[in-house]
Amino acid sequence: MPNVENERTNLAIQARGLVRRYGDMTAVAGIDLDVRRGMIFAVLGPNGAGKTTLLRMLATLTSPDAGTATVMGHDIATAPEKVRFSIAMTGQFASLDEDLTGRENLVMLARLWGFRSGTARARADELLIAFELSAAARKQVKDYSGGMRRRLDIAASLIVTPGVLFLDEPTTGLDPSARQGVWRLIRQLAASGVTVLLTTQYLEEADQLADRIAVIDHGRKIAEGTSRELKAATGSGVLHVSLADSGQIEAAADLLSAHLGSVVQRSPEGAELSVLAGDAAATNAAVTALITEGFALTDFRMGAPSLDEVFFALTGTPDASAPDAETEKAKALA
């Protein structure tokens, strides 16, 4: 194997078989991860997939029950203090002291890092300017808006420039413009050389930001690649079918599923079905079958899959409530 050593040092994060259980519940069920330095890596998964648990293990907040991992070359189990020197984590919920002002929060953390008070204040002010929080610097955090809190929380992770920044659902609960702002921030951070590992429930976010995406569900990684690769892997496209009579939807879904072998997704309004369709001949046969069986179609078309559909195809369900379907799918893809 050539360049093994090179590969190793190129990796900001390397995890093998990470497992974490809570009682009977396995939150993370054996995850491998390789994250190259300087990239934005997204961990995408629905509620309860194990994203937070995975991040907490890598950030040395929770110890794994099995498996190993290194972060910036340091083992999380044997050298957690070294790991802590090279990481910062912004948790899913703002980790700030609400009673203190924004500036005091930053100064406090800078002093905990070991900066003298003058240096600590200077760094706090730099961060406040960079994150456009100067105007609110002397307001208590409890009076901040959601977007300001998020920005301050990320700023608090940059007092010392981390090798790896963990961001757990950085935009959950933000309005679209605040979300754009955080995205911009993340891109700039990555451009400045910080490796970013973020989790998200939003496919769009992963699609927009990440160099690579790992899709996890029920504690397992079910796919990994660039967003383009993930889309490509699920077939050449998606067949969308609109029915004139929404009463026929179940029957039509069964027929499509029988022909194409994939799970059929129903639009919320009820009259539209979409299904991944890799094979043109099978797709053609499926549509023909619908027509000959007497279903009245108002429209049918082929489209490129969105990451949403990719996720759906991988997990078998948009909210991942069917573990079996998803593991089957994972096996099929593996």
Binding site: R36, D207, D211, A223, G225, T226, R228, E229, L230, A330
Partner: peptide
């Protein structure tokens, strides 16, 4: 799980 790539250099952000 699936590893879909050998080549990760074609990234959208860069």
């Amino acid at each position: 799980m699936t590893d879909l790539t050998a080549d990760a250099s074609a990234s959208p952000r860069t």
